[in-house]
Amino acid sequence: MDACGGPLGNLTAHVWLSLQNSMILSAAIFITLLGLLGYLHFVKIDQETLLIIDSLGIQMTSSYASGKESTTFIEMGKVKDVVINEAIYMQKVIYYLCILLKDPVEPPGISEVVPVFQSAKPRLDCLIEVYRSCQEILAHQKDTSTSP
């Protein structure tokens, strides 16, 4: 009995230890996976879209790496203008495109500035392309709204 109990006790201790180890290990793997999923689902943006329709408004969609999409819609009546602005961001000075919203209380004022392409941060030449098309559509919208 005695001769047998020693190795058996050793074995149980060993199994318990490896079990404990694997528990920590699996927990670590689980948390990492969860973190990764969370990152893909909430942080990493794969694609940003700006859809502007002159009779309706502006829709901004960002699709996350997991496939989740979040959409913001601004109706045309609220949009004052689309402009390119400069800002100090981290250790850089960047250009960004933003939408200016009308102030409902005080019409010539601006109530809010909504930045576009926040995660992609395209460079100036790209922004100018987008900016030009936006301005064309906005000008068209203003023409049609004032002509009738």
Binding site: V83, I84, N85, A87, L100, V113, Q135, A139
Partner: peptide, 11 residues
């Protein structure tokens, strides 16, 4: 001029 920043625009 805007309250916070000044912006470019070119129509």
């Amino acid at each position: 001029r805007r309250e916070k920043n000044k912006m470019f625009k070119a129509r």
